[in-house]
Design a protein around this nucleic acid. Structure first.
Lengths: 165, 165
DNA sequence: CTTAAACCCGTAGTCAGCTACGGAGTCAAG
DNA sequence: CTTGACTCCGTAGCTGACTACGGGTTTAAG
């Protein structure tokens, strides 16, 4: 398990997007659109991650126009942010690839089936999260009330799961 | 990325718990409580995973009583299920370890701080999940309505995130 | 008393998802 | 026309969370 290297990583994770980094960046700005570095800064990931996503077909690798350097627009940024959001929600990159394919609009039936399955998963997660939320709230308020040294029996409800608030 | 081996895995993931496996199991049942194999079957994980959790201090390794074989009770099962639920909700094993430590009830101040931080995370996830849920619902019903071959502009809202339902 | 299913424990391998490295090319600014 | 921040691309390494392997031990059942 070990403990991670933190700092830089943390900054990335917390700040999420990094327009400062974008501004500070003295990049090849003559053309329209962003460079990969700028996209990464705004999207709150690092360049290598974007390249990785491109290899895995999660993001398109844009054509280069007049220059040797590729340009990225709003479209790509949206894609990137979508990927990140979906990940937080527990979708794997493979699943996200599928979701993004849905966006192309082909294969309506499969699309629907997948979407419905995902919807179930999401509903289950919502229920679990709500249960967890109420358990944590109880824990916090019990702690606040002193409760003979914080025996915190609320944790039981957390451990036994299922909303018994 | 690659495609996984599926079948067995899938069964595990879908069925979650496996009392059939438990029943089928001709295990060392003279003593009270379950054996590790039974715990695994009921918990819907495999034995190796439980041992792994023990090494990582997520689960206690119970003392052996009269026999060379360790026995597990409700307590351990609850722990195990809690771990699994928390994982689905996006907590890492490290975080889950912390959550479980809270259950011991010591260190009230830190406990509270951690719990409050977790609560924020959970609230954010709830919001994201709700947004995704509504986006998916739209997608599904749009598909159902035919919508000139499923152009599915709903995906846009999914991609641009934030609930604009 | 044997047998075979389960157990024990240690170590090694796997897979997803990054992250780092290194050498070569590009290009805006000085 | 050099410099240095940034790009490109390929390959290698890392981390978290398992999963498998293998040799030895226990124990319920026949």
């Amino acid at each position: 398990m070990k403990t991670s290297k933190a700092s830089f990583e943390q900054a990335k994770r917390n700040g999420q997007t990094n327009k400062a980094g974008f501004a500070r960046m003295r990049a090849k700005n003559s053309e329209a659109g962003m460079t990969i570095g700028q996209l990464a800064a705004i999207g709150g990931v690092n360049v290598e991650t974007i390249r990785y996503y491109q290899r895995e077909k999660l993001l398109p690798t844009p054509k280069r126009l007049h220059s040797a350097i590729r340009r990225y627009g709003e479209e790509e940024l949206k894609h990137l942010l979508f990927i990140k959001r979906a990940q937080v929600l527990g979708f794997s990159l493979t699943e996200i690839t599928l979701l993004l394919q849905l966006a192309e609009g082909e294969h309506c039936a499969e699309t629907q089936a997948l979407a419905e399955k995902k919807l179930d998963v999401i509903k289950q997660k919502l229920a679990d999260l709500l249960a967890m939320e109420s358990a944590l709230k109880k824990l916090i308020s019990a702690c606040r009330r002193g409760k003979d040294g914080c025996g915190c029996p609320i944790i039981d409800s957390l451990i036994s799961g299922k909303n018994n608030a």
